[in-house]
Computed example of a mutant assay.
Amino acid sequence: MEQYLMIMFRTIFFYVLILLFFRVMGKREIGELSILDLVVFVMIGEMAIVSIDNPKRPLIETIIPMVLLVLIQIGLAMLSLKSKRFRDLVDGKPTIIINKGKIDEQAMRKQRYNFDDLLTQLREKDIRSIADVEFAILESSGSLSVIEKINNPNGEPKEGDITIPLIIDGVIEEENLLRINKTNFWLRQELKKLGYRDIRKLSFCSYENGKFFVDIMDEQ
């Protein structure tokens, strides 16, 4: 009887403790979990299960590695916020699967993403035909973001565009400049005309339909 009570106590204890840990680590939707989040969550869950199955094991032997994992996750999350390169390494980059109505088969092969996957995720968004899609972007979380084609009043399709970041955290995204057939020099000159001379002070900059959107970093 005593053993069963101990199992019940440990189950409730770790349930509350894991909820507390997850709150400390920050809010995430299940589909937005990074690889770091997923690994930490799985390891913490496994540790809790092992401790519940073995009531004679001291709680502190499980709590210490759990706390260590949470601290590691928080530290790496802070590093991810400060370093775009580290963020791309861990989480990966979004991939444009359909670009202005054209399927990028090379991008699909690179992500090991097939047409069955594409059609399934389009159906989940109530899109019946690929012909209705202007852009489809495979996010780093694995979800598919879709922008449908816009029609003119006469019913003819209208070509749209998406926001492509050119600067993130003070770093120029050279790959995205190539997508819009622009150069590093062009970007710097255009930003100087708008009064932005120091790229490092810009947290975000995008170019869409001939217009810039610029956000300046908050002062620390």
Rank of each mutant, 00 (worst) to 15 (best):
E2H: 13
Y4F: 05
Y4H: 06
Y4A: 13
M6K: 10
I7Y: 06
F9T: 08
I12W: 02
I12N: 00
F14P: 04
L17S: 15
L20Q: 07
R23P: 13
R23F: 15
G26M: 15
E29R: 14
E32L: 11
E32N: 15
L36K: 12
F41N: 15
I44L: 11
M47F: 13
A48K: 08
A48R: 06
I49M: 14
V50H: 15
S51W: 04
D53W: 09
P55S: 13
K56R: 12
K56A: 03
K56Y: 14
P58M: 14
L59K: 05
I60N: 01
I60W: 10
I64V: 09
P65V: 06
V67G: 09
L76S: 01
M78C: 03
L79G: 05
L79R: 02
L81W: 13
L89Q: 01
L89N: 00
L89H: 02
V90M: 09
D91T: 02
K93C: 07
K93N: 13
I96M: 15
N99F: 12
D104T: 12
E105M: 08
K110V: 10
R112S: 09
R112A: 03
L118M: 14
K125M: 11
D126V: 07
D132Q: 13
E134Y: 00
E134Q: 08
L144F: 02
S145Q: 08
V146D: 05
I147A: 01
I147K: 00
N152S: 06
N152Y: 05
N152W: 06
P153V: 02
E156D: 02
E156V: 01
P157L: 02
K158W: 04
E159D: 14
G160C: 02
G160R: 07
I162G: 02
I164F: 06
L166R: 03
I167A: 02
I168W: 00
I172W: 06
I172P: 08
E173M: 11
E173H: 03
E174Y: 01
E175D: 14
L177Y: 11
L178M: 15
R179A: 12
I180M: 04
T183P: 03
N184P: 12
F185D: 13
W186Y: 05
Q189W: 09
K193R: 05
L194R: 12
I199P: 10
S203I: 09
S203D: 09
F204E: 01
S206C: 04
E208M: 12
G210T: 04
G210M: 11
D215T: 09
I216Y: 00
Q220A: 01
